[in-house]
């Protein structure tokens, strides 16, 4: 019943199936790219996937927490942009020290998450609407800070942006990649080895049951939005590291990419089932599509959006298929 493959030491659970499909697709696309395009199959291309999408990875991981509880967070892109703006503004206009700015910015992200989570849980506002208001507010505040792009000249930032960590002969990492991987590991540990993480899954499975089983539903749900706020903030900072600038127009539509990555990574939008590892694979898959289009050269960038849409469609149908047999008793 619960195994698609054989019973025994290696069991393939149904909830793993979607992640495996994503993984298989990722490998297949990468293999195809390596065969068709010279230079595609190099380590640096893989690393570049992480470098170019590090901020999305971090944001999508936060989104995974929220979606696992059965909610959604539309504010992630706007909160990321606001974080970057705030950071750039404090550094460049007010000349605050980096050591003060970074924690403050992360706190603002957490605060946004708390506010939205509080309203969602205690006032029973639909997550979609509450985080939509959060999105408007954060995006609007960006423009209150500055209508124009702010370049970051702070030496700490410019040095970070240029730092390369050699990995083998021709491959270089950036600190961003390490931060992204650390967040991934931390999120995995939190979700699978802490009571908070398990309560996140329990709420997504059945909030009513979670309450009756004595789990701290309010704390956990608000906590998930705080994690998402924190991740958005951090993602915004990583994006600022990446571009050494901040603008209210940055990361428009990031929330859609993040949601798409989470869904393609096998997490159910109804909550309760999914893995951050799947989300990471989803981000990689989106990145691989972009890389392939870049290597292809003649296909234009809008094919990315269409490809993401098609993938989203396939995975939603796949989930529907797996889901409908799941309810069978």
């Amino acid at each position: 019943m619960t195994t698609l493959g054989m019973r025994g030491p290696v069991r393939i659970r149904r909830e793993h199936a979607a992640v495996l499909v994503t993984f298989g697709l990722l490998v297949a696309m990468f293999a195809a790219g390596s065969i068709v395009y010279p230079g595609f199959g190099s380590g640096q291309v893989v690393v570049d996937l992480f470098i170019d999408n590090g901020f999305l990875l971090v944001i999508a991981i936060g989104m995974t927490f929220v979606i696992l509880t059965g909610g959604i967070d539309l504010s992630v892109g706007a909160v990321a942009a606001l974080s970057a703006m705030l950071c750039a503004f404090l550094l460049e206009q007010w000349h605050w020290p980096v050591a003060a700015v970074l924690p403050l910015v992360l706190l603002v992200g957490i605060g946004f998450g708390f506010g939205m989570g509080y309203v969602i849980h205690h006032f029973e506002i639909q997550p979609f609407i509450a985080t939509l208001a959060g999105m408007f507010l954060a995006r609007g505040l960006c423009f209150v800070i500055s209508i124009d792009q702010i370049s970051i000249t702070n030496p700490f930032f410019t040095e970070w942006a240029q730092t390369r960590i050699p990995l083998g002969e021709e491959t270089n990492l950036t600190p961003t990649v390490l931060i992204g991987l650390a967040v991934l590991a931390g999120a995995f540990w939190t979700l699978h080895y802490t009571r908070f993480g398990r309560a996140v899954y329990a709420i997504g499975g059945s909030a009513q049951s979670a309450l009756l089983m004595g789990l701290p539903v309010a704390r956990t749900r608000i906590g998930a939005y705080m994690v998402s706020g924190l991740c958005s903030s951090l993602g915004g900072l990583l994006f600022a590291f990446y571009t050494i600038s901040a603008s209210g127009l940055h990361e428009v539509g990031t929330e859609l990419d993040a949601i798409a990555a989470v869904v393609i990574g096998g997490t159910l939008l109804t909550g309760g089932s999914g893995y951050v590892v799947g989300t990471a694979l989803g981000v990689m898959l989106l990145g691989t599509i972009q890389t392939m289009l870049r290597f292809q050269g003649t296909l234009s960038s809008w094919w990315t959006r269409i490809a993401i849409g098609v993938l989203l469609l396939l995975f939603i149908l796949l989930q529907r298929l797996l889901g409908s047999s799941r309810t069978r008793r």
């Binding site: 234009s300 809008w302 990315t304 959006r305 269409i306 849409g309 989203l312």
Partner: peptide, 9 residues
């Protein structure tokens, strides 16, 4: 998600 890509297409 896909629609804006279609428009640009």
């Amino acid at each position: 998600v896909a629609g804006r890509g279609v428009a640009q297409l």
